[in-house]
Design a binder for these strands. Structure first.
Length: 724
RNA sequence: GGGCGGUUAGCUCAGUUGGUAGAGCAAUCGCUUUACACGCGAAAGGUCACAGGUUCGAGUCCUGUACCGCCCACCA
């Protein structure tokens, strides 16, 4: 007896764990993720329109979480779809060194194991340890990324700290310095006493905190503060010029008064920065440890004296409190002021914001430091005219060259730019791109190579976002004018979470507009954060983390992907529960069984078996199918992947399986021979369409089915033609 | 203090130029129907946050209110 033509695997439920590794191997072997291979094999036309996405590089030291999974799913859908549509499609992978995060992780590990600090080890040894750690953990994230089915071109893989990217960073720094966009200056910066480094404004996270609010008697004035420990050097009292309460005081007038450590001479300063509505309207200033105070002091050329050192220890100016840590000193200082009768009032439980370093650091202490900055307001020569970085960043979006989706984020972007101040790019950590600046006495030179004997390189490294800002073009070979750069830049889409709009998206626009004279990407697609079923952030402490790898093992990568796509509208957070993932596993199995039915009923037939689409019996069915797929196509083209996937899901399950297949059973039983034949062809054709249409969303199960088909247009579904 | 988003079935969410409410999951009832129990069929479930307004007609547009969430901001 002739064996059944239905391939054996279909006799059992779909088993993703068994099929997925095989499909991965097939894809990898084909090399089709590399557009050059597709051109070589005649799959893509050499002059086809390019479509490119550069993968937001995950941190080398991390593991894959649902946020990555969502990102990979969305980008892979866009990539696979465009590849099938014949675009010259490139999805470029990479990993990020994540300077501060990585170094502090390694330092913590070393301290735990050996009770040694980085200073015990020295720069060279620490770097060796970090490199070893990075090498080891890099493989993890890369491996996990592959498991999602991501059709990335690994032949173009880049790492932020590899030689090419390092060279690009150096080149960028020197060019920006030569253009006058990078300068070195003494300014108030955000100092993290715990990590012993500066951090940028964007890395600050304000945490609400309750503290006592003290009203001190400062001569005749009532001045308020939550930080008595900064007040030692306060010798200026500032009030608004229009404040009627202080009419009798004149700018520059001096007053003798009793202060923490004895009598001092205070000077009256009239400045509009003082808020008449707040407290008494009078305030003293601590220019060395407050941004606004520093500005006031600079405006009036006042003395600036440090009170607190880099580790939070009080300096000489604190007199008897010298050498104490600010945290311990505060109550003692309050006690002394109380004893001297200088406390007017104490408001307990005053709620205010405290600046912390969001990268796992400590409470920020503003300090005046000599650092490297990018000037965002300076007018310089761009490839296309003279303007400022700020202006350029604004124009990139307002001109429409870069489109941000969802659109509401454009407003947020503009608002951020309007408030943007010079970007402090130097860090006092060791792991990162070393600043190409050289010192000899008071002389400073900026160059990639050492200027010669006696020149010592700057110890500092660059903010990790400096190198990330170059990512769209450093990965394509810049500063060399490579073929890739010409073909794929500006990239088509930058897809990432809305939480790094400022950190990264804005910085890429900054770098690309200056260094390339073009935007880094034409579209920015922002996805939401993945939260748990109740909308909470996933975190270890809540124990509500859904691990993508566990989901892949239990339900398959296709199900994991779909659960992150359907019901996830652009820019909105996704609430994910395991039930949803399970639901889509069932869908994969449904597809599997649909195939079984179709194959069982179309034995011996193939698509080119003398029937073309127009010969099919029921034109209404064909029209419906065409309309459905056109709609799916339109949704993908407008980045509504959720609607596209939803549309396919319901067409396949509710319409095709539940109605058309059911009706076909009647046809096959009672219909005429002609009717049967036409229905068979319709089923076969529709299966073909479904597999192609669903492939970007569920690449594994569709490819696994494709591989079992008796005759097909291409060896891999991955490079089959999109049906409409 | 500014700005943004959300409020639709028990839960999570769709609803694309305004035309008598939809899906998934859960819950109910019935099905070993020869593709699939990871299934099929049936039934149930909502004053679309609230109050006004525009309109023949509003979940959909306008105004305001409430609550939830997020982002930004140098109020000492």
């Amino acid at each position: 007896m002739e064996p059944s033509k239905v391939p054996e695997p279909f006799l059992k439920p779909y088993n993703p764990a068994q099929q997925e590794p095989k499909m991965l191997a097939l894809w990898e072997k084909s090399g089709y993720a590399n557009p050059d291979v597709c051109i070589e094999k005649g799959i893509t036309k050499a002059d086809a329109e390019p479509y490119s996405i550069v993968l937001p590089p995950p941190n080398v030291t991390g593991t894959l979480h649902m946020g990555h999974a969502a990102m990979l799913a969305i980008e892979d859908i866009l990539i696979r779809y465009h590849r099938m549509r014949g675009y010259k499609t490139l999805w470029l992978p990479g990993t990020d060194s994540a300077a501060i995060a990585t170094q502090s992780k390694v330092e913590t590990d070393i301290y735990k194991a050996e009770k040694k600090t980085r200073h015990d080890l020295g720069r060279e040894e620490l770097m060796k340890r970090i490199d070893a750690f990075v090498e080891e953990s890099k493989a993890t994230i890369i491996n996990q990324t592959k498991k999602m089915g991501s059709s990335l071109d690994w032949s173009r893989y880049a790492y932020t700290m590899d030689d090419k990217r390092y060279a690009a960073v150096m080149e960028a720094f020197v060019r920006m310095y030569d253009a006058g966009l990078i300068y070195r200056g003494d300014r108030i910066v955000n100092w993290d006493p715990k990590l012993q480094t500066t951090v940028s404004d964007d890395e600050i996270e304000y945490v609400e905190q309750k503290d006592a609010f003290y009203h001190f008697k400062y001569g005749p004035f009532d001045i308020g503060t939550v930080r008595p420990e900064t007040k030692f050097g306060d010798k200026y009292v500032v009030m608004h010029p229009d404040d009627a309460r202080y009419k009798e005081y004149t700018h520059g007038q001096t007053i003798e008064l009793e202060w923490i450590n004895g009598p001092i001479t205070a000077t009256i300063i009239k400045d509009a920065a003082a808020d008449m509505a707040f407290g008494s309207g009078a305030m003293t200033i601590t220019p060395a440890h407050s941004g606004i105070d520093f500005e006031i002091a600079s405006r009036h050329k006042l003395d600036i004296e440090r009170v607190i050192d880099d580790r939070g220890i009080l300096l000489d100016i604190a007199g008897e409190f010298k050498g104490q840590h600010i945290k311990k000193a505060r109550p003692l200082i309050v006690e002394k002021l109380r004893a001297k009768g200088l406390i007017a009032k104490v408001d307990e439980g005053y709620v205010h914001n405290v600046a912390t370093n969001s990268r796992g650091g400590g409470i920020i202490e503003p300090q005046i430091k000599r650092q490297w900055f990018i000037d965002v307001n300076k007018e310089v020569k761009f490839p296309d005219g003279t303007t400022s970085l700020k202006q350029k960043m604004r124009e990139a979006v307002s001109s429409g060259d870069t489109k941000i989706m969802p659109e509401r984020f454009e407003k947020i972007y503009y608002h951020w730019i309007d408030n943007l101040r010079d970007w402090c790019i130097s860090r006092q950590i060791w792991f990162g791109h070393r600043i190409p600046a050289w010192f000899k006495g008071d002389e400073v030179k900026v160059s990639i190579e050492s200027p010669g004997d006696g020149w010592v390189q700057d110890e500092d490294t660059l903010d990790t976002w400096f190198s990330s800002g170059l990512w769209t073009f450093s990965t394509l070979g810049w500063p060399e004018e490579t073929a890739d750069l010409k073909t794929y830049h500006p990239t088509t889409v930058l897809e990432t979470g809305y939480d790094i709009l400022f950190f990264w998206v804005a910085r890429m626009i900054l770098m690309s507009t200056f260094l390339r004279g073009e935007v880094p990407f034409k579209n920015v697609y922002l996805h939401g954060l993945v939260r748990d079923g109740q909308g909470r952030k996933m975190s270890k402490s809540l124990g509500n983390i859904i691990d993508p790898l566990t989901m892949i093992e239990k339900y398959g990568a296709d199900a994991a992907r779909l659960s992150l796509i359907i019901g996830a509208s652009m820019g909105n957070d996704v609430k994910l529960s395991e039930d949803r993932v399970r639901g889509y596993k069932h869908f994969a199995n449904k597809l599997w069984n649909i195939t079984r039915f179709v194959l069982e009923n179309t034995e011996g037939l193939t698509l080119d078996d003398g029937f073309d689409d127009r010969n099919e019996f029921d034109s209404a069915l064909r029209e419906e199918r065409r309309a459905t797929f056109e709609e799916v196509t339109k949704h993908i083209d407008t980045f509504r992947l959720d609607l596209a996937a939803d549309k396919l899901y319901h067409y396949i399950w509710d319409r095709f399986a539940d109605e058309i297949i059911e009706d076909s059973k009647r046809v096959f039983k009672d219909g005429s021979e002609d009717e049967k034949k036409r229905r068979r062809m319709f089923l076969l054709y529709t299966l073909d369409w479904i597999l192609k249409g669903l492939h970007p969303f569920m690449p594994f199960v569709t490819e696994a089915i494709w591989q079992q088909l008796p005759k097909k247009e291409s060896d891999l579904l991955m490079v089959a033609k999109w049906p409409v």
